[in-house]
Amino acid sequence: MTGEATVTVQPVTEQAVVLRLSGTLDAHGAGVLGRELDLRLRRADERGLRLVLDMSGVRHVSSTAVHTLDLHTRHRAADPVLVTGATPQVHRLLTTTPLPGIRLYPSLEGALAAVSSRRASRNARTWLSPAGDVPGEVFGLRAKARTSGIIGIAQGILIARYSLPGPADAFALLRAASQHHNVPLRVVASAVVAAPPPLTEREWFPGRRHAPPPGLGLPQADAVDPRDRRQVLRAALYAAVTLADADAAEIHLTDSVQDEALVLEAHHGLDAAYRDCLALVAGPPAVCALARIAGRPVTVADVAANPELAGHPVGRAALAVGSRALHAVPMVTDAGDCNGVISLHRVDPGAWLHPGQEADLDVMAHGLAMWRSWYGRTVVQDALEYLHLQAAGGG
């Protein structure tokens, strides 16, 4: 941009591109600003990206530039341009004038996190589609796409937070934290997006205390490492199948970054098509979603006789794997928060669990909920502390 103002473009994630403005946006620069917005918005739309306008380096904005911004964005109220880092003077101008096509965020990190939440919510609805005769390799591509968005947003946040050269450096930090603390890469990335910014240069969560892990209440629990997420979930899955005399089972955990959607984390006896369909559950009529919303167990005695389920992709997926009866138990903490659901399948229709089994499953689900809460406060935060220390150069 000519005069005292400059503009640079930086693709920070697979979902967003940042237009960085600096200097003074006076009447002369308003015309160039308009041309840049027109070009960058068109290119972003063609690539399916969100445009983020970083104004942290802008010292002054004229009324003409504000009018230009409105002229090029007012039609985007449903998909606004995200504006970040405005100084108090610039912020006052942008808030006193109605600008339906922009949305203000105090930081670039906050804007990128919002991009992630919006995209994830949309994906949660999109992935619940009939699998049909989709080849197996397509399931893998879908699974990769479901996680790459969150990882990309985390990379963008790390680039902005630590002034990293590019996405590769951010990915290296995520991978190092994942491997050092044996936390799945997707879980680390989600935590980066969801957690508040680090409180000090040396510590992300100063003053936090490490509580001992809660009792798992699983068979041979002493042989299960509570810091090993996969090990705990597999042990809980097989214990639930045995206890309930079920033919198949699955465990979903909530993800705050994805509007508390349920993410499939462990499964037994379910084929690839079913797992693809139930990989990310945003809401009913999936039985796991019903149990999460109700906060109590939900039983479907016969999927085929349930009109809402039988005519929906999740019901058809269950019938395709031979499941006629379903029972879902929410994982509820002492505070009343549901952070996951255990779902059980039976080939034969009918409610099959007796009261003793239901009570034991409730106890198991509660124990798993308390473990998951501890794991997030302890192991995941340990991984974030490690990442922060590495990025700050103190590793």
Rank of each mutant, 00 (worst) to 15 (best):
A195F: 12
L216C: 01
H180T: 15
A211L: 15
K144I: 12
S190C: 04
L174E: 01
P219Q: 10
P214F: 08
A177I: 07
P212G: 02
A176K: 04
G132D: 14
A145L: 10
P167G: 00
I150Y: 06
V134L: 10
V192I: 10
A194K: 07
R142C: 07
V183L: 03
Q179D: 15
P214H: 07
V187Y: 00
P213T: 00
A195P: 09
P197N: 10
G132E: 12
G149R: 08
S163A: 13
H180M: 13
E203F: 15
A177G: 13
V134N: 05
Q179E: 15
T147A: 11
G149T: 11
Q179I: 12
P167D: 04
P213R: 01
S148P: 00
D169A: 01
L199S: 11
H181F: 13
A195L: 00
P167Y: 04
S148N: 06
E137F: 13
I157Y: 05
A211V: 13
P214E: 08
H210F: 14
L216Y: 03
A168L: 15
E137N: 10
D133R: 08
G132A: 10
V134R: 06
P197Y: 05
P197I: 07
I159A: 02
G132W: 11
A189K: 03
V193K: 01
L199Y: 11
L164Q: 06
A176L: 11
V193L: 05
V138N: 02
L158E: 02
K144F: 15
I150Q: 09
A221C: 10
A172G: 06
P212D: 04
R186Y: 10
P219T: 07
F139V: 14
T200A: 07
V192F: 06
P165T: 06
A168T: 12
G136P: 13
Q155N: 08
H181M: 12
P196T: 09
L185C: 09
A211S: 14
E137P: 11
F205I: 09
R208F: 14
R142Y: 12
V134E: 13
P198M: 05
R202A: 14
A170C: 01
P214I: 03
L174W: 00
K144G: 15
G132V: 11
I157R: 07
A170I: 01
A221H: 12
L218P: 01
R208V: 14
A191Y: 02
S190I: 04
V188R: 02
V193S: 05
L216E: 00
L185W: 10
I153H: 06
A176E: 14
Y162W: 08
L164S: 04
F205E: 10
I150T: 15
F139L: 15
F171C: 02
P135C: 04
P206H: 04
A170M: 05
N182I: 05
T200I: 02
N182K: 09
L174V: 06
E203T: 12
A172P: 01
E137D: 12
G217M: 09
A168I: 11
P219N: 09
S148K: 03
G152W: 00
L141T: 08
P196D: 08
V134A: 13
A177C: 10
V188T: 12
R175A: 11
G207M: 09
T200Q: 00
